[in-house]
Design a protein around this nucleic acid. Sequence first.
DNA 1: TTGTACGCGTTATCAT
DNA 2: ATGATAACGCGTACAA
Lengths: 339, 339
Amino acid sequence: MNRNVTIKDIARAADVSISTVSRTLNGSSTVAPDKQQRVLEAAARLGYEPNAAAQGLVRGRSMTIGVLTQDIASPFYNEVARGIDVGFVDTGYQPIFVNGHWELQDESAAISALTRRQVDGLIILGGRLKDDQLHALAARFPLALVGRRVAGLERRSLKVDNIHGAWLATTHLIQMGHRRIAHITGMASHRDALDRLEGYRLALADAGVPFDPHLIYEGDFHEPSGSQAVDHWLGQGTAFSAIFSANDQMAYGARLGLYRKGIRVPEDVSLVGFDDLPASQFALPPLTSVHQPLFEMGQQAASLILQQLKDADTSAELPLLPLTLRVRESVRYARSPAL
Amino acid sequence: MNRNVTIKDIARAADVSISTVSRTLNGSSTVAPDKQQRVLEAAARLGYEPNAAAQGLVRGRSMTIGVLTQDIASPFYNEVARGIDVGFVDTGYQPIFVNGHWELQDESAAISALTRRQVDGLIILGGRLKDDQLHALAARFPLALVGRRVAGLERRSLKVDNIHGAWLATTHLIQMGHRRIAHITGMASHRDALDRLEGYRLALADAGVPFDPHLIYEGDFHEPSGSQAVDHWLGQGTAFSAIFSANDQMAYGARLGLYRKGIRVPEDVSLVGFDDLPASQFALPPLTSVHQPLFEMGQQAASLILQQLKDADTSAELPLLPLTLRVRESVRYARSPAL
DNA sequence: TTGTACGCGTTATCAT
DNA sequence: ATGATAACGCGTACAA
């Protein structure tokens, strides 16, 4: 509540001018050693902390990077956030996180909160912002897009090969002898969901396994829809010996749905997820899943921003982050007839 | 990259003085309707966004609340963060999240990043900050402590009755016929861990069940230590028919450890957790757990800050948030001899 | 090397 | 009702 200590206070205490204080504090020019001492001492004694708002105002840079996250409660985004955080450590920049999605009717409001704060860069995790809005933002700030592809902003988007990832998962099941492989997709409106479905179909085609539309159930990336998928197939009498879920959360739901019917994983049905959330390691059974390098994506988003901050031309291609299958215990060799 | 639109620009465009612009924009005084029109129109056309740094500088308030989270990757803190977020919606204040814990060697650095930003309030989730540091902060800002108790700052701390929660969990197991109830604790340095152990002992005492130190294993609140606990007990030949884990994450670990030995939950061993993470609903089997009102705690932290922001005297007692047992499927009646 | 003075964008006080 | 103008805390060009 007490007024904060300012440069002026230090100047008075050390009996020098405010410019001398400013200079010693950020070493912009040479200052006599003795005065330097006095200033530093006074600053420490008074507990001086620079006023970021004032600094930002005069410098035109705030040294903060805005991160728009969609759902701070989702384990998926958290890993990315961690990566971002370490990506900026010791760079002088500080990421601040705000949440878009649910409370603010509009993500634009969240973005606006960030831009008003004069952030020096913007990282956007997923989200529903229109492409042209993103283009507008890209024109104003260093920008990094995670988990999202926008035409014309390829250089600003971290991408993983979802098609390949899904192909990996499905092929693994096929190699384990499965032919009746059910697939829970994400929302049809979601690009990643579409890509993963595509990868699934590709793997089937490559192996000469016929595609059966009855084996497809559209989920929404949340747990309950995984259970619903299982209920649906069982209710329809659709036979399957394995399930490939477009994300881990739905895989958890499916696993629970199977459990309720007394169907065991992997003894009766094999299960593969996508994302490889930290929790999947400790799931029952530990879930085989396509590993997304979430942490690394965060780090890369940070360095993408840093790069743009340095030189305007970001001509360098982004390295494509590897998507790998983490084989654990939720898949077994298929037994003769499908369930 | 282009210079941002300022009030000055609007003034020029609308052909009025900058004070008139400022006044219409935040309605501090009456302005002629026609000029008002012109200003608003110009502002919208130019895409004006107020510069928060400048506003903060002159007003002395930044309208932002700093939230120090310990581990953004932990599902526990995320729920709280969500609550905080909605707690500030439509209040004009905006929470910004920074992470303490791992990367910045010192949480103080994170705090400093926040105070430099002239936050109007501080919410601290857990953390290792010394009590006197917290007292110092409390003297400067509206402060809210979550998941932490500090002598002298009772009015600033959200508290849940951990002892009672643990009592609830243990008593439930006793009522289900269990007598050999193992307990995985958190770090002995952690107050919550101690309280939960205390509640466990109390429940035992109340029911006349003897306390056996062999049934206690000190974990660290993370999954692997749960597995280690069961390995330990099994290795020692310690008999038990139920496990009460001081948090859900260790319960997941324990469940996995049991699974590896072919021991089923709840058929062979019953299991109760603490926290009731969202994932516990979809665990296998769905985990009986002590529900922490994490979301509500976040909301309450927000309103605690808001309250301090309004009137200096925060004499009102904080309502004690209820801790309840969510009974699901991980507990069964004990069969005759303990495992 | 050091100090004075100006400006960053905004609000608020004072005349008008 | 409206327009100058002085702050807010800081960095820096300029002068000394």
